[in-house]
């Protein structure tokens, strides 16, 4: 039977994980730099999140290929020299992803060398006390992480699926969503690590609040653009079609408005925090997943129906 969904759930999950990985890495890195080193651990958590998430995502991508054993054709020619196809967002994005993965791994070694339990590991000590190198690599990888976050949206846009292609805003939307989910993941790390610094949690919440405002603006642009250029297969399919409820209840209310309200509230009354902020973070993650899921499925099903 002909399957209307060309890019299935594996792609949804991959785009979601890559977004968190990129978002957590560059948000953590910027937190370190902006705070003058005070929030260095956010940068560390960002690295600890980025590498496994990117790896899981890439493994899912590879298994989703029709010819998985040949996955290396995406970055290498038949004679094993590197291949970059500039017109292909997938090609360019895979290179960002590869560089991001390699740099994240190296940066991870620097962080590991600081940990108590790695004292006796071989090699790892060589990475010890080289924080300026680590910072330099972190700065570079921060930019690569941003490119990874953005490319996931642009990959969808460079197709003929009307909902994805009709406007130039999908990369912007996915970048906002990636940042928000990345910040949410860092908030959950704060909880998981039992970190006593509530001030840091507040700042993560405040930053996320601003990002959600931007994401709402990006959504508004997307809807206006779809209304103008793809009213049926874009706008209607997104906000009323079979995924309409998921869009309004899942993405807009649970994923954006609700966590935003919590963050504004917590910002006003900073004494009531931990549980609420955790709830906001979980909602942001669920919403971020639904952003990918609804756009990918609703877009394809409307196109091929």
């Amino acid at each position: 039977m002909h399957n209307h969904v060309v890019w299935p759930m594996a792609i949804v999950i991959y785009l979601f994980l890559a977004g968190i990985a990129g978002g957590a890495f560059y948000s953590g890195a910027l937190a370190e730099f902006y705070s003058g080193g005070k929030y260095r651990r956010l940068s560390k958590w960002g690295t600890y999140l980025a590498l496994p998430l990117i790896l899981i995502g890439v493994i899912m991508l590879i298994f989703d290929l029709g010819r998985s054993p040949y996955f290396w054709h995406i970055i290498l020619k038949d004679n094993f020299t590197p291949l970059v196809v500039w017109s292909s967002t997938m090609s360019v994005g895979t290179w960002f992803l590869t560089i991001f993965g390699v740099l994240s791994f190296i940066i991870l070694l620097f962080w590991l060398s600081e940990e108590e339990r790695t004292k006796d590991w071989p090699i790892i000590n060589r990475f010890k006390g080289k924080d300026s190198v680590r910072k330099f690599l972190t700065f570079i990888n921060m930019i690569v992480g941003m490119l990874v976050a953005a490319y996931t949206g642009i990959l969808l846009a460079s197709t003929s699926v009307p909902m994805w292609h009709a406007t130039p805003f999908l990369g912007l939307l996915f970048a906002c969503s990636a940042t928000s989910t990345g910040l949410a993941a860092l908030m959950l790390c704060h909880k998981a690590a039992n970190d006593p610094d509530e001030e840091m949690l507040h700042l993560l919440g405040k930053a996320d609040m601003d990002v959600i405002f931007l994401e709402l603006a990006a959504f508004a642009l997307l809807l206006i653009g779809l209304g103008a250029f793809a009213p049926e297969l874009g706008l209607k399919a997104l906000i009323t079609g079979p995924y309409g409820i998921a869009f309004w209840v899942g993405i807009v209310i649970c994923g954006l408005i609700f966590p935003l309200a919590i963050e504004i509230y917590v910002n006003k009354f900073p004494t009531l925090t931990l549980g609420l902020t955790t709830l906001a973070a979980v909602l942001v993650l669920v919403g971020g997943f639904l952003v990918r899921y609804v756009i990918i499925y609703a877009g394809q099903i409307a196109w091929k129906a």
Partner: peptide, 18 residues
């Protein structure tokens, strides 16, 4: 659009950490 958005994100929301 995406890079402009990321620029804004780096310059405003995330600068909260200062």
């Amino acid at each position: 659009w995406a890079l402009a958005g990321l620029g804004l994100i780096a310059l405003f929301p995330l600068r909260r950490f200062t």
